[in-house]
């Protein structure tokens, strides 16, 4: 792999000393002084972490010829997830996950908090955007055959991410605790309960008891706030590591233009 690594950008290469520069002399201008401080700070961190190698590997790896705009759908999904995280944290500052006060707190966010409805709207519509992007990204990898050797595992991780995303949306839908979310979720949970074998257990687990109420809300809140986002973040980490490790596919119709004579040889 070493020969595939691109050379350091010019700015980072060690400068040969010019004939007029004295050894051991401090740089003169203010700009040089700042640049020098910056470099030494980076050096200081790098000396203790060796991060620069990894960062260079990640940022300067080559992307094959011919990639197009459809390749941005994955990072767009990632961005939508990050946006959900930010707006979600803001909502969590005001939200109260108890059956008696959840609705009031959401009403407070919507009507009283400065830009509250705007942030709620971003979180709500952001979930739609993220779901659409996940499906589009999955479609891209499907039609490009990107799930084939050696990227099978990345596809499997992707399906887990799809499920986690949908589950995120399912748990979030209950939280406003208005009629709509309450009844949609009651039925949704009951539908799970009709499933074979694990159905009833899943049902009990989601409801956190025989009745649908405070404990259910608390459980959905914990799943929606902690468990699922954590799992998604970890899975995205694995997903992206594999993307960087294996490289993105080239579009299937791009071929190398090797001399056909050479090609015959290894056939």
């Amino acid at each position: 792999m070493a020969n595939l690594r691109p050379p350091l950008p010019r700015a980072l290469r060690p400068k040969p000393k010019g004939p007029s520069e004295d050894n051991g002399h401090a740089p003169t201008g203010a700009r040089e002084a700042v640049a020098e401080k910056g470099i030494s700070a980076v050096d200081w961190v790098d000396e203790r972490t060796s991060l620069s190698g990894g960062a260079r590997w990640l940022m300067f790896r080559k992307i094959p010829r011919g990639t197009n705009w459809f390749y941005t759908l994955g990072s767009a999904t990632l961005f939508a997830f990050l946006a959900q995280a930010v707006t979600g944290v803001i909502l969590a500052m005001y939200y109260d996950p108890s059956a008696t006060r959840a609705y009031e707190s959401v009403r407070y966010i919507t009507n009283e908090v400065f830009l509250g409805e705007f942030v709620r709207g971003m979180h709500k519509w952001g979930s739609t955007v993220m779901v659409i992007l996940v499906f589009l990204h999955m479609g891209r990898t499907f039609f490009y055959g990107a799930y084939k050797y050696p990227r099978e595992l990345n596809w499997v991780i992707g399906v887990v991410l799809l499920l986690l995303t949908l589950f995120m949306s399912f748990t979030g839908y209950l939280l406003p605790f208005d009629q709509r979310s309450f009844w949609a979720t009651t039925v949704g949970v009951a539908i799970n309960g009709t499933g074979p074998l694990v159905g009833p257990y899943l049902n009990d687990f989601l409801r956190a008891g025989p009745e649908f109420g405070t404990t259910t809300l608390a459980r959905f809140y914990a799943l929606h706030m902690l468990v699922l986002p954590g799992a998604i973040a970890a899975m995205i980490g694995a997903h992206l590591y594999l993307v960087a490790r294996l490289g993105t596919t080239a579009p299937p119709w791009i071929k190398t233009d090797i001399d056909p004579e050479l090609r015959k040889e290894d056939a």
């Binding site: 595939l4 691109p6 990640l58 940022m59 300067f60 790896r61 080559k62 992307i63 094959p64 010829r65 011919g66 990639t67 490289g247 596919t249 080239a250 791009i254 071929k255 190398t256 090797i258």
Partner: peptide
């Protein structure tokens, strides 16, 4: 093999 050639002909991520 084909992929590594295509990759070496590409541009850096950043």
């Amino acid at each position: 093999r084909e992929y590594s050639i295509l990759k070496s002909q590409g541009k850096p991520f950043f």
